[in-house]
Computed example of a mutant assay.
Amino acid sequence: MTRLSVNVNKIAVLRNSRGADEPDICAAAAACIAAGAAGITVHPRPDQRHIRAHDVRALKASIGNRVEYNIEGNAFAAARGSYPGFLSLVAETRPTQCTLVPDNDAQITSDHGFDLRVDAPRLRPLIAELKQCGARVSLFIDADAAQIERAADAGADRVEIYTGPYAAAFARGDFRRELEQCVRAAETARAAGLGVNAGHDLSQANLDSLMAAIPFLAEVSIGHALIGEALYAGLDATVRAYLRILSRQAA
């Protein structure tokens, strides 16, 4: 069955808005795990707008090896203030997976994948370094089949297909073209020997159609919608609702 990794960044946004310790990120992650989530995802940024370096460390200690731990971020991000740099944070915390994303401070959220025609030569040695830390490496990629083989050549183990355009089209009611692009990208990745993850703006509304089209997804990483839905239904019920969608496609 496709794994659900819950991104807990939004818990940190709420906590940071008060400048104290509540809500507790480790407690939120524990609730997700208790409900059946197979992984926890964090995306620490150098500006520390949500998840901070000490959260990454605390979650590693809290999670242990119970579920997969996925750290997203820009592999080129250097140390800044109390942010130790992406590579150093990974070397310290030894996550199961690193998902490399071409983000910067000006982006509200990740809104595009790597252009591997440009980025692959710089990424290749960093991917090798991350693998030496024991991490599986996934590259955040637009649903563009032309980019996929470059991901394999760069040494990645997986790609995470950026599903933002698909989700936006689903909300408009005309998503077939974007879904077909995701399918082509996923099939190209599988043919190249890459595992296939998906993430960004996935929700209970649009996940079923994506899973029906790409039932071999290894993992979906979901944060914003899941945490928003949990405001009404609670974390336990919301995580279980996502797992029911994933299990339907596995049946």
Rank of each mutant, 00 (worst) to 15 (best):
T2Q: 10
R3A: 15
L4D: 09
S5T: 04
V6R: 05
N7L: 11
N7D: 07
V8G: 02
V8Y: 07
K10F: 03
I11R: 14
V13G: 14
N16V: 12
G19N: 13
P23C: 11
C26T: 11
C26Y: 06
C26H: 06
A29D: 08
A30V: 10
C32V: 04
I33C: 08
A34K: 04
A37P: 12
I40W: 14
T41R: 04
T41C: 12
P44G: 02
D47H: 15
Q48R: 05
R49Q: 14
I51A: 15
R52T: 07
R52P: 02
R52V: 09
A53G: 08
H54N: 06
R57K: 13
R57T: 10
K60S: 08
S62E: 08
S62V: 05
I63P: 08
G64R: 00
R66G: 09
V67S: 12
E68C: 15
N70M: 07
I71Y: 01
E72T: 05
N74L: 01
N74M: 00
N74I: 00
A78S: 09
G81H: 01
G81M: 05
Y83V: 05
G85F: 06
L87Y: 09
V90S: 04
V90I: 07
E92I: 14
E92M: 11
T99P: 13
L100P: 04
V101Q: 06
V101R: 04
P102S: 07
D103I: 05
N104S: 11
A106S: 08
Q107D: 13
Q107P: 14
I108N: 04
T109L: 13
S110I: 13
H112R: 06
F114C: 01
F114R: 01
L116F: 15
V118K: 15
A120V: 05
A120C: 03
P121Q: 13
P121L: 11
R122H: 02
L123F: 14
R124Q: 07
P125T: 09
L126Y: 01
A128L: 13
E129T: 05
L130T: 03
Q132K: 08
G134Y: 15
V137W: 04
L139K: 11
F140V: 04
D142Y: 10
A145Q: 01
Q147W: 09
Q147M: 10
Q147G: 08
E149C: 02
A151Q: 11
D157C: 07
V159R: 04
P165G: 02
Y166R: 02
A167W: 09
F175M: 08
R177N: 02
R177Y: 01
R177M: 03
E178G: 00
Q181W: 02
V183K: 14
V183R: 13
E187Q: 11
R190T: 10
A191K: 13
A192Q: 12
A198D: 06
G199W: 09
H200K: 11
H200M: 11
L202D: 04
Q204T: 08
A205F: 07
N206S: 12
D208L: 01
L210Q: 08
I214Q: 00
L217G: 10
L217K: 06
A218D: 06
V220T: 15
S221M: 10
H224E: 08
L226M: 04
E229V: 00
E229R: 04
L231K: 00
G234C: 00
G234K: 00
A237K: 00
R248Q: 06
A251Y: 04
